[in-house]
């Protein structure tokens, strides 16, 4: 009796039949349904120019970034070095003037005027009163307190 009860409530009693079912034509229509879902997942073919652009674009962006950095670096470097150079040039000019200052004697000045056949344009004929004596010219220049730096520049 006990054995009968056990059998009546046992797993085997329920059998191995599949108790579930599916909607009509489910398995027949499943591949098509899946295929539609796959189609939406598959990437659509891209036309060549667009595909080429897609390939080129990241490389182009990278090249632009590198060029940008190089340009910024170059400009920065140039600014820095040119400032240095300007300073160096200014220093050189000052040193040059200091070094050759004693050469700018009256005699040297006059010899240079003569050598280069330089003359002062003089709209006033009275100005010729000084004649050809260079000492008179020099005196005139001293009296008028002409800035020496302007004179150097002119020279």
């Amino acid at each position: 009796m006990q054995s009968k009860d056990k059998k009546a409530t046992g797993i085997e009693q329920a059998g191995k039949n599949n108790p579930f079912s599916v909607p009509a034509n489910y398995f027949e229509s499943f591949p098509e349904k899946l295929n539609n879902r796959l189609q939406s997942k598959r990437p659509s073919p891209v036309p060549f120019p667009e595909r080429a652009w897609q390939l080129i674009r990241p490389r182009l962006a990278l090249a632009a970034v590198i060029t940008g950095f190089a340009l910024i670096g170059y400009l920065g470097l140039r600014t820095f070095t040119s400032t240095e150079q300007d300073l160096a040039n200014s220093e050189n000019i000052a040193m040059y003037i200091d070094f050759y200052q004693e050469d700018f004697s009256d005699q040297y000045f006059l010899s240079q005027l003569e050598e280069h056949d330089y003359y002062f344009e003089d709209p006033d004929p009275d100005y010729r009163l000084y004649g050809d004596d260079p000492d008179l010219y020099i005196e005139y220049l001293y009296q008028d307190e002409i800035a020496m730096d302007l004179l150097y520049a002119e020279f």
């Binding site: 797993i11 009693q13 329920a14 039949n17 108790p19 579930f20 079912s21 909607p23």
Partner: peptide, 15 residues
């Protein structure tokens, strides 16, 4: 409450 369950009482118990 499953529409697509065709099992009998014993099969339901087992499930």
């Amino acid at each position: 409450g499953n529409t697509y369950f065709d099992g009998d009482e014993l099969e339901l118990k087992l499930q």
